[in-house]
Design a protein around this nucleic acid. Structure first.
Length: 580
RNA sequence: GUGCCCGUAGCUCAGCUGGAUAGAGCGUUUCCCUCCGAAGGAAAAGGCCGUUGGUUCGAAUCCAAUCGGGCACGCCA
C-alpha cells in the first residue's frame, strides 16, 4: 500500500539531474503526523534528499507536492515548516489495505530486500556442562525471533548452536561425574572433594545413576585415563539431549549444532592460523600490562603467540596459545568462524550476553581477517534478566548448583509467557522477570492484552459463523469496504498498512521487541473500535439485519487477525482463540 | 585506569535512518455493560527526556564532557 506513495515520491526524485539512483524506496520516510489535523501522512523527503540532489528543499517539496496532488489517492497536500509535506488520502486507499492483507495472507509482512542471501544466526551456544538456566532463556528467545525476522526480509537463515565440547571444563565435568559415580556405588564423598572448577549440581548425580545402570562398577578404582574420555562423551551427549529438549519446549529449534571437537579434528585451527599468518597477523610477542592491574607484582610478562586483532579494530592483540602449548578458547573460535565462512556465510549474527561485551571486537576482527574482509559478523548483546519472586530477587549460585533452570521457568509460567517477557523489551535494557507478575492477568502483563484482542476477533467470527455458516475468503474480498469510514476503523487500517514497514525495520535493526510493541498498538486500536460499537451500534461488527455490511466489517477484522497472527508467528507465541 | 550498555511521568517501559505540541500501561480521579467477551473503552492529572556544552532549518535521538547505575578488561570458557 505505502509502496504506491513511496514510488510516486521516488519518481519525483528521479527527475532531478543529479540523480537519485542511490536512493531506494525504503529510504523515504512515511509516517503519521502526531497531530491528526495535519493529515494522514507526512514525509520529510524534501529535506532528506535536497542536499544530495543539490536543490533547495523548498523547490523539491513543491515538486513532490505537485506529484502527490495529481495522484488518484491523494485528496489534499500542504507544505509546512522547513519542508514537511503533509497529505490526506482517500478512505478507499486505506480500505485497500484490507484486501491486500487478505490476498497476501501469510506473505503479508514479508519483503525480499535481501532475497535468498545466506545468513547465520548463532545463539544460545551454552556450555554442555549443565542444564540451560534462566540466563539462557533470553538468549534463546532473542535469537530465535531474530532468525524469524531475518527470514521476513528474504534471508535464508541458518540457526546455529556452537558446542564447546572440549577443554578443561569438560574434564572437570567428567571428574565431577566420576565422584558422583563412586558415591552412587557407596563410596564416601564429601563436598570438599569438589574443587571450585567442578560441578556439584543435582543433575550430575542423575547422570551418575545412569552411568551405574549401564556400566555397574566397571570404572571403580580405575585410573583417570581409563574413564575420562568415555565419561566426558557420556556427559556431553546427555547434556546436549537435555539442552535440545529444553529448547524445544521453549519453541526453539536449531538447524545446525557445530562441535568444537569436530572442528579441531579437521585441523581447522591450524588452517585458520595459516590464513592469518599469510596476512602477517600472527606473531610471537608480549602483551602490555593492562591499566587495570595496578602493580607489576600481579603481572608477569611472557611471550605468546598473538593475533594482530588491533589491525582490524580491536583494542589489544589477542593470545591464541596458552603457555602449556594448548589453544586458547579464542583459537577455537577462529576455527569455528573459519568454518562458517567456508560454508558460504558472508553475513553472520551472534547473540551474546552483556557479560561478553569484551569479546565483540576480537570476534569481528577474526571474521574480517579470516575472510579477507569479505564477511561480517554482527554481535548483539542482551542485558541480563533479574528473576524475582513477588518483588524479591531470587538468589542463585551456580557453584552450589541451586540456580533456576530454563526448564523450571517454562514449566512454571509457560512457553508463551516466557517468550513474551524475554522479547518485549529492548535487548539493551535489563529485565525484571517476576514469577508472580508474569502470570498475572493484568496490564502488567501486556501479552494478555494482545491475546484478548485476538480472542475477541475469533469470538466474533464464531458468533457469525454459528448463525450463517462459514465465511469464505471471497466473501471477504468481494465485500464493500467503502462503508468502513469511521475514524476508529480508518486508524486500524492505517496501522495494518504500516505492518510490513515495521517488520522490515525491526529485522534490519535486529530489534525484535518492536514487534510486540506494534502488536500492542494494533490491539489497542482494535479494543477501541470494539468499545465504540457499544456506544454507536452502527459500528458493531455483527448486524443481523444487514449481512453485507457485516461481511464488510468482518473483512477488517480478518485483516487485523492475519496481522496479529503474523506477529505471533514472529515472536513464537501461540495465539489464543478463546480465553474464558 | 580503559571499553560497552542504560538514565524519558510516582512505577515499568516505547519513541524507527535526527522531524512538527515526547507516547503507552500500571497506580490516582471521573465516566461507559438491556446489545458481538468490561481480562475492555473514553477522559483528567502527571515531564527542564540525568546535567552542561556543541553540531543544524530542527536533538530524547548525533558529538564532547560530566554525574549516577550495570557489565567487562593478559593463558577461564
Amino acid at each position: 500500500m505505502l509502496h504506491t506513495i513511496r514510488s510516486c515520491i521516488l519518481n519525483v526524485l528521479n527527475l532531478f539531474t543529479k540523480g537519485a539512483k542511490d536512493i531506494a524506496e525504503d529510504m523515504i520516510l512515511l509516517d503519521q503526523p502526531k497531530d491528526k489535523n495535519l493529515g494522514d501522512l507526512y514525509t520529510n523527503a524534501a529535506m532528506m534528499f535536497a542536499k544530495r540532489l543539490e536543490i533547495s528543499p523548498r523547490v523539491l517539496a513543491e515538486a513532490i507536492r505537485d506529484a502527490l496532488a495529481s495522484s488518484e489517492n491523494v485528496t489534499e497536500v500542504s507544505l509546512a515548516g522547513p519542508g514537511f509535506i503533509n497529505f490526506k488520502l482517500k478512505n478507499s486507499f486505506w480500505q485497500g489495505v484490507i484486501s491486500d492483507v487478505i490476498e497476501q495472507n501469510e506473505n503479508y509482512g514479508f519483503s525480499n530486500v535481501y532475497a535468498n542471501k545466506l545468513i547465520n544466526v548463532e545463539f544460545v551456544s551454552a556450555n554442555p556442562t549443565g542444564p540451560l538456566h534462566t540466563g539462557h532463556a533470553r538468549n534463546a528467545v532473542f535469537g530465535s525471533v531474530v532468525a524469524n525476522l531475518l527470514e521476513r526480509i528474504g534471508y535464508k537463515v541458518t540457526r546455529e548452536f556452537y558446542i564447546n565440547d572440549q577443554g578443561n571444563q569438560i574434564k572437570f565435568l567428567a571428574r565431577s561425574l566420576y565422584l558422583r559415580y563412586r558415591e552412587a556405588l557407596g563410596a564416601e564423598i564429601s563436598e570438599s572433594d569438589f574443587t571450585s572448577d567442578m560441578y556439584c549440581g543435582a543433575y550430575v548425580k542423575e547422570l551418575a545413576k545412569e552411568l551405574v545402570d549401564i556400566y555397574q562398577d566397571k570404572f571403580l578404582n580405575q585410573p583417570e585415563s581409563e574413564w575420562l574420555a568415555l565419561l566426558s562423551q557420556f556427559a556431553i551427549d546427555r547434556m546436549m539431549q537435555n539442552v535440545k529438549n529444553d529448547l524445544r519446549n521453549l519453541g526453539v529449534v536449531m538447524d545446525v549444532y557445530t562441535s568444537e571437537a569436530e572442528l579441531c579434528k579437521r585441523n581447522l585451527v591450524e588452517e585458520a592460523l595459516n590464513i592469518l599468518s599469510e596476512c602477517g597477523d600472527i606473531y610471537e610477542g608480549v602483551l602490555p600490562r593492562p591499566k587495570g592491574i595496578a602493580s607489576d607484582d600481579e603481572w608477569e610478562e611472557r611471550p605468546q603467540t598473538l593475533f594482530r586483532s588491533t589491525k582490524y579494530g580491536d583494542d589489544v592483540d589477542r593470545a591464541i596459545r596458552k603457555s602449556d602449548g594448548t589453544w586458547t578458547y579464542f583459537a577455537g573460535d577462529l576455527a569455528y568462524h573459519l568454518d562458517k565462512i567456508k560454508r558460504g556465510f558472508t553475513e553472520m549474527v551472534a547473540i551474546l550476553g552483556a557479560d561478553h561485551n569484551g569479546y565483540v571486537k576480537r570476534l569481528k576482527s577474526a571474521v574480517k581477517a579470516l575472510s579477507a574482509g569479505k564477511a561480517n559478523i554482527e554481535v548483539r548483546l542482551y542485558q541480563l534478566v533479574n528473576f524475582l519472586e513477588n518483588g524479591k530477587p531470587v538468589r542463585m549460585s551456580k557453584r552450589a548448583g541451586n540456580f533456576i533452570t530454563l526448564k523450571d521457568v517454562v514449566e512454571r509460567v509457560g512457553k508463551d509467557v516466557t517468550r513474551y517477557m524475554m522479547i518485549s523489551r529492548h535487548h539493551d535494557v535489563m529485565i525484571d522477570f517476576d514469577f508472580v507478575k508474569a502470570v498475572e492477568q493484568s496490564m502488567d502483563n501486556p501479552l494478555f492484552y494482545i491475546q484478548y484482542a485476538y480472542a475477541r476477533i475469533c469470538s466474533v467470527f464464531r458468533n457469525y459463523e454459528a448463525e450463517n455458516g462459514e465465511i469464505t475468503r471471497d466473501d471477504l474480498l468481494n465485500s464493500d469496504k467503502s462503508i468502513l469510514s469511521d475514524e476508529a476503523e480508518i486508524s486500524l487500517m492505517k496501522a495494518l498498512a504500516f505492518w510490513p514497514d515495521q517488520v522490515k525495520a525491526a529485522a534490519i535493526a535486529i530489534e525484535p521487541h518492536r514487534i510486540p510493541v506494534y502488536m500492542q498498538n494494533i490491539a489497542s486500536l482494535f479494543h477501541s473500535l470494539w468499545n465504540k460499537g457499544k456506544i454507536n451500534s452502527e459500528l458493531r461488527f455483527i448486524d443481523k439485519e444487514n449481512r453485507h455490511e457485516t461481511i464488510s466489517r468482518l473483512s477488517l477484522l480478518m485483516a487485523t487477525k492475519k496481522v496479529l497472527e503474523d506477529g505471533f508467528r514472529i515472536i513464537g507465541v501461540t495465539p489464543m482463540m478463546e480465553m474464558r
